[in-house]
Design a binder for these strands. Structure first.
Lengths: 211, 211
DNA sequence: GTGATTTACTGAACACTGTTCAGTAGATTT
DNA sequence: AAATCTACTGAACAGTGTTCAGTAAATCAC
């Protein structure tokens, strides 16, 4: 059935084209300012056509949310090259904040907005695998650190989670603009980058003490 | 000019009525589902009237954002009664998370959404005093802890900030619903409350070690 | 008391939003 | 050639924040 195949291919092409257009618009203008009609206009189809491939806007959000996780996990994977686990942990912290800073819209989609996750909520079979994959990367590194004498006696799952909370907290304060208002209050810091790095460095100092 | 006074009073009354109605609707249905028309209907005025008292929706957001901070700072003030600074620090952590859990919409308004802050952005004279007040509470407690031998050698401002990042991270993961998805992955925890408390307790254990 | 002015307020509109659905043009099958 | 199926769309629905000309009533000046 070559004809069926060609049709199937075209269908998948269009679905991918929609996603690409959505992504470009989101990264360009942020999703607050990206509408279904904008996406439709970009791909030169009617808005209704999008709904033949995606149930609603949240399903597009979810698809991009997954793309974001691929990006993040890939970054983490390159850090496997760092053999010393504590050095790797530090590198992961910087990589995480870097990711959030350079892809604030992706970060929002992945860790802040609840809309993309609503796709999962209804389907109990699905779970948040992307999130767990990324978290296991952290947890494994923490456990390796423990074999080298760090974080003695701490339950790795819970402790890893507190680490995630800290960097996530910093990332959200930064991407939401609240960090900028904090910076304006303590005028000694020159720019956002400086405040971010200083905070992360301070936290690493704290972790370093836990040997 | 008694007439002027009466008019002024009525004007301020109406402004307060708008805010009260907005607050009730926000807490009732969340602000995603609260529109200017909803607020207008509740106070039995036309939508356009609201704009005579508030520049736009963000200005209402900002007013509620400030109310939220009064609430939080008041909670913190009652904790001044705890004399031991480390015990106070612990209590503040629980109070903070508790506040976020019981007032998720206020928390969103205060620490997650950037819209309310946009009122400040334009007016350079204004700064984020509310946020700074709350933060100073934390920083002072941390500094008191240092006199008792905790957190030796750590620069208090930066270190306090990492503490805020951690509890803020936990609070946002919880209110955004991401914590629930994490909980579903590690099935051993019964409910959200348990995960939250366990995480906070683990973090307190970490801090306790820093003596 | 009467006319002019100011104040408080509103109806209707503008330009959007996500989403649905009847209807159509064209390809494919019978 | 007629019937079916597929891919797609125009137009509508029910909303959103916001603006502005216009109105009714209160106040002021004479």
């Amino acid at each position: 059935m070559g004809i069926e195949d060609r049709k199937q291919r075209h269908k998948e092409d269009l679905k991918a084209t929609i996603l690409r257009a959505a992504k470009e618009l989101f990264l360009e203008k942020g999703f607050e300012r990206t509408s279904m009609r904008n996406i439709a206009e970009k791909i030169e189809y009617s808005p209704a056509t999008i709904y033949l491939h995606y149930k609603d806007k949240n399903e597009i959000f979810y698809a991009l949310h997954q793309e974001g996780f691929k990006l993040l996990v890939n970054t983490f994977k390159t850090l496997s090259a760092v053999s010393d686990p504590f050095e790797r942990l530090k590198a992961m912290g910087y990589a995480y904040i870097n990711f959030a800073t350079e892809n604030p819209d992706f970060y929002q989609l992945m860790f802040v907005m609840s809309e993309p996750m609503s796709v999962l909520d209804l389907d109990a079979a699905k779970s948040w695998d992307e999130g767990q994959d990324a978290f296991l990367f952290l947890q494994n590194t923490v456990m390796e650190c423990q074999t080298k004498g760090y974080f003695k006696g701490l339950e790795p799952n819970g402790f890893s989670f507190t680490i995630w909370c800290t960097v996530h907290g910093l990332a959200t304060l930064r991407t939401s603009g609240h960090l900028e208002h904090v910076r304006q209050a303590k005028t000694n810091m020159a720019d956002l980058e400086a405040v971010t790095n200083y905070t992360l460095q301070t936290y690493i100092n704290v972790l370093e003490r836990m040997k």
